[in-house]
Design a protein around this nucleic acid. Structure first.
Length: 285
DNA sequence: GCCCAGGACGGAA
DNA sequence: TTCCGTCATGGG
């Protein structure tokens, strides 16, 4: 049963930019323009025609939550629109929204995303779901593995997930959090810097992954993840922050502090728009 | 063969 | 504290 959600005229949203900009790893688009993805234990199919979203597999309430359609995007973009560079990115990526991803799969997905590229991350996350997740009834898709499957017996299935050196980090971090429990609440309850420290103490989670998890999995918009692409963008547009040569933790810190002071509480949105514009919004399906 | 990709870690300096 | 080599994996 397909549902329809009509967006109001002041509710800017681009489904393709939002799903195609690389923030989530389980979405694919078919020839007919439908996006299909797995979120939690649901297979969601959705397409956009102008201000109309047609979707199956979830409720309107969860769709609005996941795509953050309840946010006043215009206000957010107004606050970060500080100069011609970011302004051009805002124009180019109009309607891009930062998703509210389930924090567990967001954390482990970005643990898989170090020193690699987006197609490989998507492959690893899919293999994780197929190796350790539950098949979703009536579909050929698998849910992301729940915490409890990460125990002493998960080493063998993880061998098939092309994780490389990340395998040990993922096993350790996932087992630890599954055994402890309550980590999400602890992160959510902490001020930003303390929450960031909780995450970076986990094996395989450094500053970049922690900032991505805070931004995409906890809606902490002051997070400003700096990958090699963002560093290049900062070198080009804001040369006072970025340096040449090797990328040191000190420089990472300088860039993210600058971004937070310069763009404000929604610095993470500035990051995503700069990234999306550089990747070429036009190339995203 | 090389270099690079939404980096992180352990050990040396 | 700050560098520096290394870590699988695949694509160009």
């Amino acid at each position: 049963m397909a549902h329809t959600l009509n967006l109001s005229s002041d509710q800017s949203f681009s489904l393709s930019l939002t799903l195609g900009c690389g923030q989530a790893f389980r979405w694919e688009q078919d020839e007919a323009g439908w996006w299909e993805g797995v979120v939690g234990d649901e297979v969601i199919r959705v397409r956009q025609e102008d201000r109309s979203l047609t979707f199956t597999g979830t409720s309107e309430e969860r769709l609005i939550e996941y795509f953050a359609l309840d946010m006043d995007l215009a206000h957010v973009l107004e606050t970060i629109d500080r100069d011609p560079f970011i302004h051009a990115a805002i124009e180019e990526c109009a309607g891009l929204r930062i998703l509210r991803q389930p924090s567990w799969e967001c954390l482990l997905s970005y643990l898989c995303a170090t020193n690699t590229n987006i197609p490989m991350v998507k492959k690893r996350v899919r293999l994780l779901a197929e190796s350790l997740g539950e098949r979703i009834p009536g579909t050929d898709q698998f849910a992301f593995p729940v915490p409890s499957v990460f125990n002493e017996t998960c080493a063998e299935p993880l061998d098939h997930c092309r994780l490389g050196y990340r395998k040990g980090y993922l096993a350790t971090t996932a087992c630890q959090l599954a055994a402890e429990g309550g980590w999400e609440g602890r992160v959510r309850a902490q001020p930003f810097e303390e929450a960031r420290q909780v995450l970076t103490r986990l094996p395989g989670i450094g500053p970049k992954a922690a900032d991505c998890v805070l931004l995409f999995g906890f809606s902490r918009y002051e997070a400003f993840p700096v990958d090699v692409w963002i560093r290049r963008i900062m070198q080009q547009f804001y040369p006072e922050t970025a340096a040449e040569g090797s990328f040191t933790p000190k420089e990472y810190e300088r860039i993210r502090r600058f971004a937070w002071e310069y763009f404000g509480e929604y610095a993470g949105y500035a990051q995503e728009y700069l990234y999306g514009a550089r990747m070429g919004a036009a190339q995203i399906p």
